[in-house]
């Protein structure tokens, strides 16, 4: 399974999001010094989940980091994260 599909599955199960965008930006970093060149190294993720309601930014990121701990320890080099509760405007 691709890293993207694997992350999608874990986030869908763990956070039951009403919106989940996973954008692979690895190509943008293909020539960059620390880029592993696997095509699965740099991702941008936007999540809207009711499970984020009443949680601080750090708590939300910790929830995502825990779900993706295997990926973050392995092939993912960079993850840009935006987290929203359903009642918050998505910016």
């Amino acid at each position: 399974m691709s890293a993207e599909a694997q992350m999608r599955e874990k986030l869908l199960i763990g956070l039951e999001p009403i919106r989940l965008d996973i954008i692979n930006e690895s190509e943008l970093h293909a020539g960059h010094r620390n880029s592993p060149g696997t095509g699965e190294s740099h991702f941008r993720i936007l999540i809207v989940s009711p499970k984020f309601s009443g949680k601080s930014r750090v708590e939300r990121h910790r929830m995502v980091n825990a779900l993706l701990s295997d990926e973050l320890a392995g092939r993912i080099h960079a993850l840009a994260l935006k987290t929203y509760a359903p009642e918050e405007p998505v910016g």
Binding site: R57, V58, H61, R62, N65, L72, A73, L81
Partner: peptide, 23 residues
Amino acid sequence: NWPTIPQLYVKGEFVGGCDIVRE
């Protein structure tokens, strides 16, 4: 217990990484 760098601390307290600090 945070998998990425950078990490910002203010007065001994963890504030966050790049996305959180920027927001």
